[in-house]
Design a protein around this nucleic acid. Structure first.
Length: 313
DNA sequence: ATTCCAACCTGATAGC
DNA sequence: TGCTATCAGGTTGGAA
């Protein structure tokens, strides 16, 4: 979300909204689309802040546009280009691609295939332009006629709401300290008396906000702490190491542009690279890069949880 | 006062 | 080919 904030900021801040298109009312819209359109039309965006995984955009009338991307949300420029922004209809499935490939290899002479490839490379850029689909829930156009801004979210676990001037919202008010500033003592204090697994505490946005499933697993690995450990049993020393690991992992992910594993793209369409630095998340059955043991996957707090049984105690 | 768990959605993939 | 089951960067509200 921090990478998204940094890169979508210039496409929002200082621009006056001329058009607002939305999909039909749904779980995603905490503010009804009709009210959202009324509240946004003609407004100028004054800034863009992040509160944990939420983005908050103050408007020139004192209202605030609040966005959360949930699991599959994508916030991006109309000029962005990426296969991750295409819906299934606009993209060939893996089965189709495989079928086409094997057909092609069977009947097509190599020279012909090369010619087709160069034709495709010549034509493709024009065809790749993003076209709003049924998952594109918000589309903002601006007075300056520049690039639009899109919010797309396949699963609709994201959130869009408009807070009127001075209005607050419990979802924002209950957030803890930002993960980038989580301190050992704060984590230690928050863990006291909690019987839940330490991973559940890391994911609790009221303790620290911004830590998601990938980063919880990666931080626990770095700190050498097993995710299933009872939070209340962690020592000050372990909390210090874990808080440090959280900060390090989050900073590194921001540096590398985030984790593009399945849906995430930056607002400019670029993939992040943090997925290449994962040591445990999504590596169940593979060898631990530190000790060679098999990475294990278990459920903790109903979330897939990955750890090294020898490095993490 | 916590912790658990189903629910909110859709799509990709693995296995039979 | 198709069908079923499982999994997925999150959060919430109410039951246990």
């Amino acid at each position: 979300m921090e990478v998204t904030r940094q890169r979508i900021g210039p496409l929002l801040v200082g621009r006056r909204i001329r058009s607002v298109a939305t999909t039909r009312p749904s779980y995603l819209f905490l503010t009804r689309p009709s009210a959202l359109r009324r509240g946004l039309l003609g407004r100028t965006v004054r800034g863009l802040e992040r509160r944990g995984k939420y983005l908050v955009a103050p408007l020139d009338d004192g209202a605030r546009l609040v966005l959360h991307l949930g699991m599959t949300g994508q916030l991006f420029s109309g000029e962005a280009t990426s296969p991750r922004l295409l819906s299934a209809q606009g993209r060939s499935s893996q089965a189709e691609r495989a079928a086409r490939r094997s057909r092609a290899e069977f009947i097509e002479p190599q020279a012909e295939r090369a010619a087709r490839r160069s034709r495709a490379e010549f034509i493709e850029p024009a065809q790749r332009r993003f076209r709003p689909d049924s998952h594109t829930h918000l589309r903002l156009g601006f007075e300056d006629g520049g690039p639009e801004v899109f919010l797309r979210d396949v699963r609709k676990f994201g959130k869009v709401l408009l807070l009127r001037s001075g209005e607050s919202h419990p979802r924002l008010d209950l957030l803890g300290v930002d993960a980038l500033e989580l301190s050992g003592p704060a984590l230690f204090a928050a863990s006291r008396g909690r019987r839940a697994a330490v991973k559940a505490v890391l994911l609790d946005q009221g303790v620290a906000t911004g830590i998601g499933n990938i980063y919880a697993d990666e931080a626990l690995f770095r700190a050498g702490v097993r995710p299933t450990r009872r939070a209340g049993a962690l020592t000050r020393r372990e909390c210090a190491a874990l808080a440090e690991a959280v900060r390090a992992v989050m900073h590194r992910s921001i540096e590398t542009g985030g984790s593009s594993i399945r849906d995430y793209v930056a607002p400019d369409g670029a993939d992040g690279a943090y997925q290449d630095e994962r040591r445990v998340y999504g590596r169940a059955g593979a060898e631990c890069l530190a000790c060679g043991a098999r990475i294990r996957r278990v459920l903790v707090a109903q979330r897939g949880t990955h750890f090294c049984p020898t490095c993490q105690r």
